[in-house]
Design a protein around this nucleic acid. Structure first.
Lengths: 274, 274
DNA sequence: CAGATAATGATCATTTTTGTTCATTTTTAT
DNA sequence: ATAAAAATGAACAAAAATGATCATTATCTG
């Protein structure tokens, strides 16, 4: 951001039409935006960002905290968190965590500004959401409350949660309403996670209840991107969600071997290893 | 447009060449447009933009504020909408917290095993969910992710989240999908929270976007239970969500006076003070 | 065209906001 | 645990914005 001090008076200093000193009110609003984007900020950072004294930032933060939007700490502010973490969820998330983060980052880079996308429920797909926070003009449809919460404060992102029944002890929505919402939408891309991806049988899943939602996502999207860590490749499971011919792109980790991915490449699927 | 000849022409006005010869009224209209576009503006910005003295802008702003279109602040103006910030969730949750807990507990006791109920989004209604955790054989439909998460691990409770768009910086779902889901359900009871309950006008709400969801909940339920702390009783707001005749039961706190609740009792509404 | 009326610009005392300093508290490193 | 470093809040000074007043300019009316 370009900072122009108030007392630097130049009559015709309209440069690219943006005036760069802020109303106190606007500054407070932007502080909130800033912290929502980056989750945390120091007083010094904010003072520099907005070109004001740290005392001013402290005064602003005191007011903002009073309003309840953010939580102050020594040295800065953080977002008031929704951390009611499920142990089993965390456990799953920590298996191949590094790989999943890389996959999420790469998958997020496949999303272009202005697109509407579907993000499936899952630990890997959640990392896609995390990497979309700073993006703008994107609509995300998801059946995962974690994804929704992750993107809740992202100013450039509109979040639509499919309705449905809360799958026991998870943050995932399923059932008739989910299917109905997905059936009435069309998006550019769908990012689908999976516990089993087989060279012959394609996308598979052990739980029949969850199959229709995934199939609905696949039907609703023009391009299907499957994201999964390397350990799921080659696995079999009970139900076939979709054949490999429905998949356009596969994002996995560098841990996946050439042999793992070759069958998919041969079927015309673009494979990325993050 | 009327032409006004001025002899004092500022350099910037020549360069800009757009806003030089404006009638006062036209200028005011454009100020409003400008602020609508940029969300905020400083007096200095506007003075430069329209080539008039800051005192003139101040006079304009005073009138505009009088008319209610914009909100003045020190140094400039902002859009009213952004000032009249609904207090954040955390802030609201802490106002009358004890009373809301009592209301939630009493309201929860109105739910019988085996029933299907709707729980509206809100801080008071969230306490209803909290008091339902140990109950069994209850289906809860809600448009609030907080309610859903609260009941996520309750073994005896099935949770259905309506779909919809995530209302910015909240945990509330709204929009077409919400309305559709609510339109296809019927439940025994709906627990509705409200920021304004008026003896004559009934259930009111300041935000038009959120009205259809509440109306959908009311239509979907056989019995309407309004839960609200005493401070909301007697308040007016912009939109009428439902007349008092639609309400069957009102749960509020002991803080509510006899005079507060009498009008509702006279209309046949059962009133509980928790 | 002259005078009335309204709008604008300039000045200044007052109020609000921001910057500075410093004693105190909290965090970090030893 | 103790000392050094950093952050904080409070008090005060400086700067900027405001409202009121009054002079000036532009438009309207007869």
């Amino acid at each position: 951001m370009r900072i122009v001090y108030k007392n630097a008076v130049s009559l015709c200093s309209i440069q690219e039409g943006r005036y760069d000193w802020l109303l106190a009110h606007e500054r407070k609003r932007r502080i909130i935006d800033y912290v929502r984007q980056y989750r945390t900020a120091t007083v010094a950072q904010l003072a520099q960002e907005f070109g004001v004294h740290t005392a001013t930032i402290r005064r602003d933060l005191a007011e903002i905290e009073q309003e309840g939007a953010l939580k102050r700490t020594h040295g800065g502010v953080i977002m008031e968190q929704w951390t009611r973490n499920e142990p089993s969820f965390n456990e799953r998330a920590n298996v191949h965590r590094e790989e999943k983060i890389r996959i999420g980052q790469l998958a997020a880079s496949l999303v272009e500004d202005g697109e509407n996308i579907i993000i499936d429920s899952g630990t890997t797909t959640l990392h896609i959401a995390t990497h979309l926070i700073h993006r703008s003009d994107i609509t995300v449809i998801t059946n995962d409350m974690n994804v929704a919460v992750e993107l809740r404060d992202a100013p450039g992102i509109k979040v639509i949660l499919t309705g449905g029944e809360l799958y026991p002890s998870s943050y995932m929505l399923n059932g008739m309403f989910t299917d109905h919402v997905l059936g009435s939408l069309h998006v550019e891309k769908a990012f689908i996670g999976t516990p089993a991806l087989h060279p012959q049988h394609g996308l598979m899943h052990p739980e029949a209840l969850l199959v229709p939602a995934k199939q609905g996502m696949i039907r609703a999207a023009g391009e299907i991107v499957v994201v999964t860590d390397h350990s799921k490749i080659g696995k079999l499971s009970l139900h076939t969600v979709a054949p490999n011919s429905a998949i356009h792109t596969l994002v996995t980790g560098t841990e996946a071997s050439d042999a793992d991915i070759r069958p998919f490449q041969e079927r015309g699927i673009t494979v990325y290893r993050a």
